[in-house]
């Protein structure tokens, strides 16, 4: 799946082969290949620059492990740095001390918010929770229908007020969840560009009104350099608490994962891996690092050494 990327890294590592020490000069070429590979994987250019510096420092400061070649050691350093940037472990979804836990979904048009609302609701119910979904997108044609249809599919209720003020819909939706004794309330919102100030202000009002415990940025895993701008703007305005990366069932390398985490400091909590409502998995940084680098096998080799 990640042929081009692993080939490139392979190439970089080959250049270290046969040498018994990582040095400033022999690492140069390898770092260039890593940079190339990460850019090819859509990691943001600025993020790549920072990352390469971290890898350089880590590599030069590393002790030589007996029995491990420098090339293998280098792979492990790159991988470990990637995991470090993306967070060391899976971070679970918030749980409020007094229910309902309020989750606000936000993101660009078509990123997968509405679908992910239903996936998350189903996921929570499988954990024995009682979720409610709220139809807060009054702009996209048939957005309310879409969420209701998904709700019917999974037998989870959807609160809607038709096309009225999204802030009011959110307020009443949370109130309804409280009255119905729900554990979670998931607010769907319309897709918006971060430069659409009016639409961003609307989200801020929703936030101020319902004070969500979790604000999740939903990002299409195929996104390019824009991931960093997008994350920065949404984070500055809303203070996101995490992200969900969708459409990872495709063949994209998903370098956005690195950018999102690096820019916001917030964890990616779930990944979307299909169009069906069951297709949601927790996010594991180490698996994502391996995916970006396409190097599962080599790693286990180094681990054994």
């Amino acid at each position: 799946m990640f042929d081009a990327l692993s080939e490139k890294l392979e190439l970089a590592w080959k250049k270290l082969r046969g040498q018994d020490k990582i040095t400033e000069t022999n690492i140069q070429e390898a770092l260039r290949e890593v940079r190339r590979a990460l850019l090819d994987a859509d990691v943001n250019l600025q993020v790549v620059k920072r990352f390469i510096e971290e890898v350089r420092e880590a590599a030069l400061g590393s002790e030589v492990i007996m029995g491990v070649n420098p090339d293998q050691q280098f792979i492990k350093i790159v991988h470990d740095e990637l995991v470090k940037v993306m967070g060391d472990a899976n971070v679970p979804i918030a749980q409020a001390s007094t229910p309902p836990t309020i989750i606000l979904m936000a993101g660009l048009q078509g990123s997968g918010k509405t679908t992910t609302c239903a996936k998350l609701a189903l996921y929570l119910r499988k954990q024995g929770k009682k979720p409610l979904m709220v139809a807060g997108d009054i702009y996209r044609p048939a957005a309310i229908d879409q969420l209701k249809t998904l709700g019917q599919q999974i037998q989870i209720p959807v609160f809607d007020l038709g096309k009225t003020d999204p802030v009011e819909i959110a307020r009443q939706g949370v109130e309804a969840a409280r009255q119905q004794g729900c554990d979670y309330v998931i607010l769907d919102t319309a897709g918006r560009l971060q430069i659409d100030l009016e639409m961003m202000a609307e989200l801020e009002r929703v936030k101020a009104t319902v004070q969500p415990h979790e604000i999740l940025l939903v990002v299409d895993a195929m996104i390019g350099q824009e991931a960093a701008n997008l994350t920065q703007a949404f984070h500055e305005r809303l203070g996101i608490t995490g992200a969900i990366l969708t459409k990872l069932d495709g063949d994209t390398r998903g370098g956005a994962a690195l950018s999102i985490r690096q820019v916001s400091g917030q964890p990616i909590k779930f990944i979307g891996v299909g169009e069906k409502v069951e297709a949601l998995d927790p996010f594991y940084p180490d698996r994502m690092a391996s995916r970006i680098l396409g190097m599962g096998d080599i790693l286990s080799l180094v681990e054994k050494a």
């Binding site: 859509d42 299409d220 195929m222 996104i223 824009e226 997008l230 994209t252 390398r253 370098g255």
Partner: peptide
């Protein structure tokens, strides 16, 4: 093709 897409667009 969504203009926000990265290198996967070529694929």
């Amino acid at each position: 093709l969504d203009a926000t897409q990265g290198q996967n667009g070529l694929r």
